[in-house]
Amino acid sequence: MKPPALAVRLFRRLLPDFSRDAILGDMEETFAQIEMERGVGAARRWYWLETLAALPSFAIHSLQTTQIRRQIVIGNTWNENWFGKQDSRLVAGIGFVLLLPALITVSLALIWFNFGPAIFDLIPGAHALQEWMETGYIQVGSLSFPVGILIMGSLLLTVLVTALAAMKISIERVKASYRFTFTIKPEAWSVVLAILVVLLGIGLDWLIT
């Protein structure tokens, strides 16, 4: 009789590569021993209990080792070059996220500043849209939206995403410095982030009003 397949699969997922075979082998050896002494039911119960008892510690261990590896990677990049591989990937990801709100902002701003007609002249069949633009309202069904509000909305979204991205880069960079990595806990960073977001909100509110 074999140990419960689901428990084995669960175990296999979380065990470190280093000792996966040895642990599964130990478990199977004990399973066979219990099965011989107390029957298959007792052996299956033991296997499940042992799996449930061990999984949290292996899950935490897996997280810890992943975190350490990540910090070493970021730390190496930090030491090698300020604009290293890690940052390049991060900036590329942020750039992708920013692309859509940036495009919306630029095109709406062009329309708002009366560059719209020139653009729409280049697009065949866009004159109906041009007419809407010239009135300063975008008509969607029976609803009409002032273009200015849409510009402000997409602008705010762009600013917000940019600020969050800048915070992420700053946090990653500060975390990469070993001096801070071990003295500031992630929870503390969440508080710093929350304070910065509140300050940003206050600043935007002050700017707008």
């Binding site: 040895a22 642990i23 042992e50 008892a53 061990a54 949290p56 510690s57 261990h61």
Partner: peptide, 23 residues
């Protein structure tokens, strides 16, 4: 692993899970 677990159970009187030995 298994022998270490059995030895520790004998000495301490408590069961040790595989995680508490292998980690």
């Amino acid at each position: 692993g298994l022998a270490i677990g059995a030895h520790l159970k004998k000495v301490t009187g408590k069961s040790w899970s595989v995680g508490s030995i292998y980690i």
